[in-house]
Amino acid sequence: MYDAPKLETALDQQDIKISADKVQVYYGETHAIKDVSVEIEDKTVTAFIGPSGCGKSTFLRTLNRMNDTIDICRVQGNILLDGEDIYHAKVDPVQLRAKVGMVFQKPNPFPKSIYDNIAYGPRIHGLANSKADLDVIVEKSLRRGAIWDEVKDRLHAPGTGLSGGQQQRLCIARAVATEPEVLLMDEPCSALDPIATAQVEELIDELRKNYSVVIVTHSMQQAARVSQKTAFFHLGNLVEYDDTSKIFTNPSDERTESYITGRIG
């Protein structure tokens, strides 16, 4: 993730993938994220829940520096990915985003063929040495996106012609094609019907084998179904962060309980 690539040292499997410490985010004068500290584990699905405007999407976007594209946004505090500060001056945000992939609320396939949608990232980052390499990457990614069987016969049809659920799985496949280590998902199912949602949720569970997945969701059932850890945000504060089972059965904070039982939010 530094500008100059360095040799991979022998991978000692850390449990903590991302560690955020006293993160503050400001939009102009607005203090959007207040003093958030959270440790996101590897090979785990972490869900961010909370009412609209509580800052969960903003915080998600600080994790791969997508907020850099917004002029008035300022971030303070430390966010470490594998122990390295991602806001350090040496870090190239473009390289960082290849490592921390992102899937958005609305499916946003590029106006290209299905094949080119997937090949986009690998081509940019030079991950394939030959056409055959690229074919392998595309197939692998589409399989991981659980959409290979549906599109293998029409790889060169436009990606925008797929149904909403297929488009979203295509976007997930596109995100995993660059071999990220973390996958950020910003309400990936909010534009999908229940069947497509179920497919994507199944896929998220699959992805957990290889990646650390962070998902923002408005659906508490979804958080309970797919995640192992849950963070509850309220008014820019991280109220509670714990095992999902504990959050949903025995929350320690009153506000969390009010939210999951439907009294606020």
Partner: peptide, 13 residues
């Protein structure tokens, strides 16, 4: 739409 650009930036372009 901005979502197209976000999608591309999100991949690291």
């Amino acid at each position: 739409p901005q979502s197209m650009r976000d999608g591309s930036y999100g991949i690291g372009a």
